[in-house]
């Protein structure tokens, strides 16, 4: 955002340069073929310009070898682009296991971000440089899309489920953050800034607001408030499964399948408990749809994530 009239976006994430390299390759390819094709058109137009009273040229019906050549060469080139783009896409969509998680909620027309340490922000996102960061996203109303051009990534934000975006910022500074999916009247206003800070500054920033509880702490209170612990306890008589260590584990269902207990699974378990039933348990869990807000939900999930050691004193 420094230059007044830039022609190329800043590159501030670990894969920004990879995307740019591919982009430049495609530009080179496009320029080559445009010049080739248009050059030939113009060359032929002058070289074979019709002379007055000229006879019609001899017909040329076709040539299989030529047809094959100009089918196979583009095919090979496009397959190279496909593989290259596909590998990088895989990288763009697959956060590393050690990524730090932040939650983001989009709604008409603002972004809210929640840091596990308890700090929240609106239309701004603070992240530390050099650390892989994953933002788990959902919407309270229509589709939105979190787009950070300097990081060369974006992801749609949907109501009713989680999507995620990740990046490793490589350069401190402030960058644009846009909503890229049309979401109604003030779509163009649904923008903000991403501030990349040094880890030390970030730590300071996280602690900057006093009196904020960590998300898992708030989540623990909600867990009690909604009386989840009446069924979910770390003891064998519990009516529901223990939630300790469930996050990111593989859960065996009563239909014999296993699913990974990611944020989306936890979300579904709470809002639509009948959708997947854990093996060995009855479908007695009530739905909390309409009772728990998106914000409370991510706090409860953050609490469940924090349950790594068996809890002794849930009550």
């Amino acid at each position: 955002m420094n230059s007044k009239f830039p022609l190329f976006p800043e590159a501030a994430s670990s894969f920004a340069h990879h995307v740019d390299t591919l982009y430049f390759f495609l530009i080179a390819l496009s320029v080559f073929f445009s010049v080739l094709i248009f050059g030939l058109v113009l060359f032929f137009a002058f070289r074979y310009k019709r002379k007055p009273n000229a006879e019609d040229p001899k017909p040329m019906l076709g040539d299989l070898r030529l047809e094959l050549t100009w089918s196979i060469i583009p095919l090979l080139i496009t397959m190279v682009i496909f593989v290259w783009g596909g590998l990088l896409y895989y990288h763009q969509l697959t956060p590393p296991a050690n990524a730090q998680e932040i939650f983001g909620i989009g709604k008409q027309w603002m972004w809210k971000f929640y840091h596990p340490e308890g700090r929240n922000e609106i239309n701004e996102l603070h992240v530390p440089v050099g650390r892989p960061t994953k933002v788990i996203l959902t919407s309270e109303d229509v589709l939105h899309d979190l787009f950070i051009p300097a990081f060369r990534t974006k992801m749609d934000v949907l109501p009713g489920r989680y999507t995620q975006i990740w990046f490793t910022p490589t350069k401190t500074g402030t960058y644009h953050l846009f909503c890229a999916e049309y979401c109604g009247t003030k779509h163009a206003d649904m923008k903000g800034t991403v501030t990349v800070m040094s880890p030390l500054e970030y730590q300071g920033w996280l602690n900057g607001e006093l009196g904020q509880d960590r998300m898992d702490k708030t989540g623990k209170e909600l867990f009690k408030q909604f009386a989840c612990q009446t069924c979910h306890q770390d003891q064998s008589l519990s009516r529901g499964p223990s939630l300790t260590g469930v996050y990111d584990s593989m859960v065996l269902l009563n239909n014999g399948k296993t699913v990974k207990a990611d944020a989306d699974y936890l979300r579904e378990s709470i809002l639509k408990p009948k959708a997947k039933i854990v093996q060995g348990y009855d479908a007695i869990m009530p739905t909390y749809k309409g009772q728990i807000s998106e914000e409370q939900l991510i706090q409860i999930i953050e609490y469940i994530k924090s349950l790594k050691e068996p809890q002794k004193e849930v009550n």
């Binding site: 894969f15 990879h18 995307v19 591919l22 982009y23 495609l26 390819l29 496009s30 073929f33 445009s34 496009t78 682009i81 496909f82 290259w84 783009g85 596909g86 590998l87 990088l88 896409y89 990288h91 763009q92 899309d145 787009f147 051009p149 060369r152 990534t153 974006k154 890229a180 999916e181």
Partner: peptide
Amino acid sequence: GLTGLFLACLAVDVHVHDT
């Protein structure tokens, strides 16, 4: 057509989609 290749190319599309 050639810029269509940019969009069919997954990694670049992630950046330029909806722009």
